[in-house]
């Protein structure tokens, strides 16, 4: 589904991602793990084209998406959650989610001349999502008034609502309560059962190894090893990478 071929990114002499290659198979949950500075978030930024790669190619559904503008990557079917909260703070939760649904809202003349289109079906979708997240009460709250955990959940909802065939989640459970963590784990497993493909970065090992089908370990910008959670768990190389020499 997603194929990374020998991608590299250099930040002023520091090789953040170095000749990195791997594949993500459809209908799996694949986890990217590795010590701090291994290049996980940089890799995410390269895939969603927030930063441009120096060399290498990224293919999605056999299409070359390397260094396309971020919106084109998104429209190719990749939806992404950022590591830091990026809700639209001055919009309501409902508006935040509505924005993700489709692009009729970007049509200027349509929005100017047509009577505000009935959004009932869209609002239903949003309400269903809020229901799934257990956040119905927050519908009309401004995003800036939510707690951190609530923001993460709404953002996850927004990422899922954004039309996609592939989800990329950067630390979806960092800094949330254990109850919320289990809830998110259930949501992700449910999504996979519906046929979704997910790539995620997560530091929480119990969470990651619990839900992932495949694990890719990054170290110093390239793939150290990949395999099933079981294989990774007892691997000496992985331990060494985490603990240092």
């Amino acid at each position: 589904m997603l194929e990374i071929k020998k991608i590299s990114k250099d930040f002023g002499g520091v090789k953040a991602v170095n000749n990195c290659s791997f594949k993500v198979e459809p209908n799996t949950i694949t986890a990217l793990i590795g010590p701090n500075g291994a290049g996980k978030s940089t890799l995410f930024n390269l895939i969603s084209s927030v930063i441009k790669s120096d060399t290498g190619k990224i293919f999605f559904d056999k299409k070359d998406i390397t260094n396309l503008p971020p919106e084109k990557v998104s429209n190719a079917g990749i939806s992404r959650l950022f590591q830091k909260a990026r809700l639209f703070e001055n919009l309501t939760v409902e508006d935040n989610l509505l924005l993700a649904l489709d692009h009729t809202d970007t049509k200027f003349w349509f929005n100017l001349f047509c009577k505000t289109p009935k959004q009932t079906d869209k609002i239903q979708k949003v309400e269903k999502m809020l229901d799934m997240l257990g956040m119905k009460k927050t519908k009309n709250m401004f995003a800036k008034d939510l707690s951190y955990g609530q923001k993460r959940l709404i953002e996850l909802g927004r990422t899922i609502l954004n039309p996609h065939s592939f989800l990329m989640l950067d630390e979806p459970v960092a800094g949330v309560t254990p109850e919320l963590r289990d809830k998110i784990a259930n949501i992700l497993i449910e999504l996979k059962n519906q046929g979704e493909t997910i790539l995620l970065i997560e530091h929480d090992m119990n969470f990651t190894l619990g839900i992932a089908d495949r694990v890719i370990v990054l170290d110093q910008g390239s793939v150290l090893i990949e395999g099933t959670p079981k294989q990774i768990k007892n691997n000496k190389q992985v331990l060494k990478a985490y603990l240092g020499e």
């Binding site: 969603s48 927030v50 503008p69 971020p70 919106e71 998104s74 429209n75 939806s79 992404r80 950022f82 990026r86 809700l87 639209f88 703070e89 001055n90 919009l91 508006d95 935040n96 509505l98 924005l99 993700a100 692009h103 009729t104 809202d105 970007t106 049509k107 200027f108 929005n111 100017l112 505000t116 289109p117 959004q119 927004r158 954004n162 039309p163």
Partner: peptide, 30 residues
């Protein structure tokens, strides 16, 4: 304009342009 869904996109761009692009909207055009 500002009350329409288009206006919400404008406000979203004000709050976080990159996040709007990640949702697949061509913010330059908007």
């Amino acid at each position: 304009i500002v009350k329409s869904p288009f206006g919400k996109v404008l406000e979203a761009i004000r709050d976080d342009e990159l996040a709007v692009r990640i949702l697949g909207k061509n913010t330059f055009k908007i």
